[in-house]
Simulated assay, not measured.
Amino acid sequence: MSTSRPRQRYEGSCHCGAVKFAITTNFPELTTCDCSICVRKNAVMVKVHETDFELIAGEGTLSEYKFHTMTARHFFCSNCGIYPFHRKRVTPGFVGINVFCLDGVDLSNVPVRATVGKGMD
Rank of each mutant, 00 (worst) to 15 (best):
R40D: 08
E11T: 04
K41Y: 10
N109I: 05
F67D: 04
A57W: 13
V19Q: 03
T25R: 00
R113M: 13
K20L: 04
D34W: 02
V48T: 00
N79H: 12
A22N: 01
K20E: 01
V99Q: 04
E29R: 15
F67C: 05
L102R: 02
Y65T: 10
C35L: 10
S78M: 07
A72C: 06
R5H: 04
A57G: 05
N79I: 15
K20P: 00
E59C: 08
G96I: 07
E11G: 06
E59V: 07
G17M: 01
E29P: 00
K66E: 15
K47H: 09
E29V: 05
I56V: 15
F27Q: 03
P92C: 02
L107I: 05
G17I: 05
G58R: 07
K41L: 12
S2N: 08
S63R: 15
M70H: 12
T32C: 06
V48Y: 00
R87Y: 01
C35K: 03
I23P: 02
F67N: 09
T25F: 09
T25H: 06
L55A: 03
N98T: 08
P6D: 10
F67Y: 14
K20R: 11
M1W: 12
G12N: 03
R7T: 08
N109D: 15
T3M: 06
Q8I: 02
C80T: 07
K41T: 15
G58S: 11
R89G: 07
T61Y: 04
T31W: 09
R87E: 11
F67T: 09
P84Y: 00
V105W: 01
C80G: 03
V95R: 04
R40S: 11
T69M: 05
T115Q: 14
P92T: 03
V46W: 06
F94Q: 13
H15F: 02
K66P: 01
E50Y: 03
M120I: 15
F75M: 12
G119I: 01
R113A: 11
V19W: 02
C38D: 06
L62G: 15
A18E: 01
V19I: 09
P6A: 12
T32R: 13
H15D: 05
V116F: 13
F21K: 01
K118F: 10
L102N: 11
